[in-house]
Amino acid sequence: MTAPVLEVRGLEVALGHRRARRTVLHDVSFVIEPGATLGLVGESGSGKTTTGRAIAGLVRPASGSILLDGHDVSRERWWRRPGGGTLQVVFQDPYSSMNPALRVEDILREPLRTLRLPRAEARRRSEEMLARVGLPVAALDRYVAAFSGGQRQRLAIARALVSRPRVIVCDEAVSALDLSVQAQVLNLLKDLQEELGIAYLFIGHNLDVVEFMSHRIAVLYEGRVVESGDAAEVLRRPTHAYTRRLVSAILSPDPREQARRRALVTATPTQEGPS
């Protein structure tokens, strides 16, 4: 077994100030091997986005450790993280994740700043990345407003990749995209993983999408990992009651299969939702 590229141990995060402060993550642990994908699923408020933000250094953990390539970075906020872009993030909203007042070239150069590359080299790398995600080189001189949602998410992926990170956190990276575009982006992410050996932490609420992308899956519920393991295994033979409930609520895009699932669900009725 290769050494994990990302290891999270006993992560605990509290958010809010003073009276409003509450712990949203309790003892979250998982590992990701190089070139593998861990899917992190859960419903709204489960803490999956907070997990991603803590790993990216955007929120400060209360305790626990985050080992990136063997170095504990859990005490380091974003401005003090070591290394040259070992970890990058692809965010959900391709409209607000890129500064509309900057040209694509400037956006792509941002992750390269800490590498102190010569300008020409940075430009060459950016061009290479654009080609890799399927956008023309001419895009470098444009503003993001000129691109559609799917194209922007390709740009976001290019930005995440340009510093050649070992781990990318995909925080609901395709949730805002239409089905046909979503399929294009998912394929792209998979191809990139195979070619470059990047590891993904793939955060999502759509179990079909997460299953398609992930080798392993961890299920978050109220800030705790309630179940984790091989992706197909977890979703086909869930052991925890919450995972079972979650899996049984997935709708199949096949009327007959869905009718069969529904028959199972109505046999075990669920109670009133959260209040």
Partner: peptide, 13 residues
């Protein structure tokens, strides 16, 4: 805005 987070992840000072 998410682009602020993105810049932080890229460790823009």
């Amino acid at each position: 805005e998410l682009f602020i987070d993105a810049a932080k992840v890229s460790r823009v000072p």
